[in-house]
C-alpha cells in the first residue's frame, strides 16, 4: 500500500528532472549568467567595504560577506526550487489543467511536492554541486570541514520544506484572483527582503532584526546561511531549527485549510 503510493508519485519527480535536462543550451546560459550575477553583487560589496572605515560591517568581514552572498545564492537554489510553486499552481488554475489533476485519485499537493523534490535533485546534481565546487576553487567559500556543514544541509532542507508549504499556501490565492502574476511578484520582492537575500538581516536595527528572524522568510534562507557561516551558537542553532519546523507545520496547516475552501470555489472556463 505504502510502496504503491510512493510509486505513483515518482514519475512526477522524474519528469521534472528529465525536463531540466532536456534543454542543455538554456541550461548552459543559465549557468553563466547566474555566475555573473553573483560577481556583480560581489563587486557591489567590495565597493562598500572599500568605502568603509571599518573592516567589519555589522558583524561581517569582507570574506564573510563574500561567503554570505555565495551561500545565499546556493541556498536559494536549494530552497528556491519551489519558489515557482505558487506560479505553477496559478498556471494550472488559469489554463484549467488543474481540473484534470483533481479528477485523478491522487493528491494534488503530493504531485506538486514530488515535482519540487525532483527539481531539487536535478538542481543538486546539475547546479548546486558544480557551483559549490567552482566557488571553492575561486576562493569565495572555504572547504567546509565542520559539523556546521551537516547542520547547514539539514537546515537548508527544512528551508526547502518551509518554502514549499509557503509556496503552496500562497499559490492557492490564484483561485481567488485573476491577476496572480502581480501578487506573486510583490511576494517575491517581500521574500527577498525578509529572507536576507537582499542584505543580511543584521543590517537592520536590532529590534527589527529580532522580529524579522521570527518570520517564516528567515527560516527559508537566512537560518541555513548563518549556520553555515558559524554565526549562530549551539543554543541558537537548536532554537532556529525548531522555529523552522514550527513554520513548516503552521504553513502546512494553513495550506490544508485554504485548500479545502479554495477547491469549492474553483471556476474553470470552457468545457
Amino acid at each position: 500500500m505504502r510502496i504503491n503510493r510512493i510509486k505513483c508519485y515518482t514519475p512526477f519527480a522524474l519528469n521534472t528532472i528529465k525536463r531540466s535536462m532536456a534543454y542543455k543550451g538554456a541550461f548552459f546560459i543559465t549557468l553563466v549568467s547566474r555566475l555573473f550575477t553573483v560577481f556583480v553583487i560581489y563587486f557591489l560589496w567590495k565597493a562598500i567595504y572599500g568605502s568603509s572605515v571599518n573592516s567589519i560591517i555589522r558583524g561581517f568581514s569582507f570574506p564573510e560577506m563574500t561567503a554570505y552572498i555565495t551561500m545565499n545564492f546556493l541556498t536559494g537554489l536549494i530552497t528556491g526550487v519551489t519558489g515557482s510553486i505558487a506560479m505553477q499552481i496559478a498556471f494550472d488554475v488559469s489554463d484549467g489543467s488543474i481540473s484534470i489533476q483533481l479528477v485523478r485519485p491522487i493528491s494534488y499537493r503530493l504531485i506538486k511536492f514530488s515535482e519540487s523534490l525532483g527539481g531539487l535533485c536535478g538542481n543538486g546534481f546539475f547546479q548546486i554541486i558544480p557551483f559549490f565546487l567552482i566557488f571553492i576553487v575561486i576562493g569565495f567559500i572555504k572547504v567546509p570541514m565542520s559539523i556546521n556543514f551537516i547542520l547547514y544541509l539539514f537546515s537548508a532542507f527544512l528551508g526547502f520544506l518551509c518554502m514549499f508549504c509557503f509556496g503552496f499556501f500562497f499559490g492557492l490565492f490564484s483561485f481567488y484572483t485573476t491577476y496572480f502574476f502581480g501578487f506573486n511578484m510583490a511576494m517575491s520582492v517581500i521574500l527577498q527582503f525578509f529572507s536576507g537575500s537582499l542584505i543580511p538581516l543584521t543590517f537592520f536595527p536590532e529590534y527589527l532584526e529580532k522580529t524579522f528572524r521570527l518570520f517564516p522568510f528567515a527560516s527559508m534562507n537566512y537560518t541555513p546561511i548563518m549556520i553555515y557561516l558559524g554565526k549562530l551558537s549551539g543554543k541558537e542553532i537548536v532554537y532556529a531549527l525548531m522555529l523552522q519546523i514550527v513554520w513548516i507545520l503552521l504553513l502546512y496547516l494553513a495550506g490544508k485549510i485554504l485548500w479545502s475552501s479554495a477547491i469549492k470555489r474553483l471556476t474553470i472556463l470552457g468545457g
Binding site: 568605502s51 568603509s52 560591517i57 543590517f203 537592520f204
Partner: peptide, 10 residues
Amino acid sequence: LIFEQIPDLN
C-alpha cells in the same frame, strides 16, 4: 541601510 555604515560609495 548601506549608507548607515559608510559615508559614501566610491
